[in-house]
């Protein structure tokens, strides 16, 4: 995983309070586990049937029966439990998972996301994305600010198929953090060295600006 992806993952960490039950999606969200200051203080749930996901094992300790939803080997922490898929999604849809961290292909002006299918391509995989988006108490998107071709991922309207009608709560990129409040995006944080103008240029949806630490940003803008 790249430096940018790790920076995004690290920027998600302040949004995860101690004691939270958290489901991490595949990709950048998975990296969040590596950046938690006290991994024992958070309970990671994986939808293939484990609450209490622990760190990646050493190669000699890999158990073929113990993987996370990305099918990579994991361990189980003390206090972990295993359960069937139906129970796992009961936890998710039933609102018992506090936070889901998901990747996104696009985010619209209302905070709704597209993260499972591309337009014009056969739709052959969805996994647990729709259930997590519908059921988790809070949803945090962890994504690069722009697509690989440089185009905006935060757009007025998604051109990719939506994953759910429910808006997410927080969008974290390497450059900025937005919250979704009353159906609109609110820019609340800029990463060090990132200017408001850069975010405006690389965001194709309207947003309100309410920086939580403006002094720090003025300083960073001066140095930019």
């Amino acid at each position: 995983m790249s430096d940018v992806q790790n920076r995004i993952a690290a920027r998600v960490v302040p949004h995860i309070p101690p004691g939270a039950v958290v489901n991490l999606g595949i990709g950048i969200p998975t990296l969040v586990a590596d950046h938690l200051p006290d991994a024992d203080a958070v309970f990671l749930q994986t939808e293939n049937g484990l609450l209490g996901v622990g760190p990646t094992p050493a190669p000699e300790d890999v158990d073929p029966d113990l993987v996370h939803a990305g099918k990579q080997p994991v361990t189980a922490r003390p206090g972990a439990s295993y359960f069937a898929s139906s129970a796992s999604f009961g936890m998710i849809r039933g609102g018992h998972v506090g936070i889901a961290v998901l990747g996104a292909l696009q985010i619209d002006a209302q905070g709704r996301i597209a993260n499972w299918a591309l337009p014009g391509k056969p739709v052959l995989g969805v996994g647990g994305a729709m259930d997590l988006l519908v059921g988790a108490k809070r949803v945090i998107v962890a994504t690069t600010h722009t697509a690989k071709d440089g185009s905006a991922k935060i757009v007025a309207e998604c051109t990719f198929p939506l994953t759910a009608l429910r808006p997410v709560d927080v969008v974290v990129t390497e450059a900025a953090t937005f919250t979704v409040e009353n159906g609109e995006l609110v820019l609340v944080d800029l990463a060090d060295g990132v200017t408001l103008d850069w975010v405006r240029e690389h965001t194709a949806a309207p947003f309100r600006t309410a920086l939580r630490n403006p002094a720090r940003h003025e300083e960073s803008i001066d140095h930019a």
Binding site: S85, S86, G128, M130, D131, G135
Partner: peptide, 15 residues
């Protein structure tokens, strides 16, 4: 032929 279901819907349909 493929019938795609969200994973939780698949699990609950079976349950």
């Amino acid at each position: 032929e493929i019938d795609l279901l969200p994973q939780g819907t698949l699990a609950e349909s079976i349950r």
